[in-house]
């Protein structure tokens, strides 16, 4: 198949065929991660810059390992150690980086739309690693990949996503992705964390966890972002945990073979009880493992046929 996108800015821009093609490609790359020599020369000579304006361990490491296993040269820039703290604008930072001729910039930024802003101004490919409250495409793709791995399909499944829906880019990307691949999406969270009109993206809205997870195939729990807005939207984490935390008893409402997912990092005892977080239905570390393969596929597909791509 011809994969045209030069940038990966959001799931919204991708077709169901393109999403499936990314997942199928990731399937082939997954095998490399279990070899003794975990490296192929596919992106030899390409330079990938991980430009992270927000703290990240999992996503940044995952993109870095993905690039390295494809033999690309990867460079990490984080906001705290860069010229951003000296007052440089995003565009100036990006233009300076571009002058060093990278092939792909993987960016995370706190402003929604920051990746698209760069993609319009730079010649290299831009991959969104999370922008504000907008999208986190690689997370949604690794979630879809993990669901497909454990359930054998995505089409026809029901997935519940629970937590701070308003501030979650993971939710938005997942709603687009799961809908395009034929799954039904339910969302649930406290009123203060449910944006009005979200159902227009294609999901069913619930005010309580119990109704939302009844008979679902997959429960995706979101992290309460204590360091951000999250804390002021709920009376206390204890109360949140009582109503919207997932424990063993509540999980029994879902299908017996339902899987439990979490984008990490987990607040144990808040959104997930330790018993569920470590229980047989959790696939959380599988998500992390699959993240590398999915990001290898994304880097490969934006770099492949680059001389033929004109946006």
């Amino acid at each position: 198949m011809i994969f045209n996108p030069k940038h990966i800015l959001g799931i919204r821009d991708l077709t169901a065929e393109e999403l499936t093609f990314i997942l199928d490609t990731a399937e082939s790359f997954k095998e490399i991660n279990t070899r003794q020599i975990k490296k192929v020369p596919t992106l030899r000579g390409r330079t990938i810059i991980n430009l992270f304006f927000e703290a990240s361990t999992r996503t940044r490491t995952s993109f870095e390992i993905a690039g390295k296993r494809l033999s690309a040269d990867t460079v990490n820039i984080s906001a705290s150690s860069s010229s951003v703290v000296k007052g440089e604008t995003l565009e100036d930072t990006a233009k300076n980086i571009e002058a060093m001729h990278p092939d792909i910039i993987v960016m995370r930024h706190s402003a929604s739309g920051a990746c698209e802003y760069l993609a319009r101004r730079l010649k290299c490919s831009v991959v969104n690693a999370g922008d504000g409250m907008h999208e986190h495409p690689s997370q949604a793709l690794l979630d879809a990949f993990t669901i497909r791995q454990f359930k054998g399909r995505i089409d026809g499944l029901t997935v519940a996503i629970v937590g701070d829906i308003t501030h979650s880019r993971v939710v938005r990307s997942n709603i687009y992705c799961l809908n395009k691949l034929g799954a039904k999406v339910r969302i649930a969270g406290p009123r203060t964390m449910l944006p009005p009109g979200i159902e227009r993206l294609g999901c069913e809205v619930f005010n309580n966890l119990e109704d939302a997870i009844r008979d679902v195939d997959c429960v995706m729990m979101l992290r309460i972002q204590r360091e951000r807005q999250g804390a002021s939207l709920i009376p206390s984490t204890r109360e949140y945990s009582r109503f919207f935390g997932l424990n063993e008893a509540k999980l029994r409402l879902a299908k017996p073979d339902a899987i439990v997912m979490h984008p990490g990092p987990i607040n144990r005892g808040v959104e997930l009880s330790t018993v569920v977080a470590d229980g047989p239905q959790n696939v959380i570390l599988g998500q992390v493992e699959n993240g590398v393969a999915v990001r290898m596929a994304l880097l490969y597909l934006v770099a492949g046929g680059e001389q033929l791509k004109n946006d």
Binding site: M1, I2, F21, D24, F29, Y300, A303, G304
Partner: peptide, 9 residues
């Protein structure tokens, strides 16, 4: 890689 259309792996 750069000049190829079909990216199937």
């Amino acid at each position: 890689l750069g000049t190829r259309n079909d990216l199937e792996v």
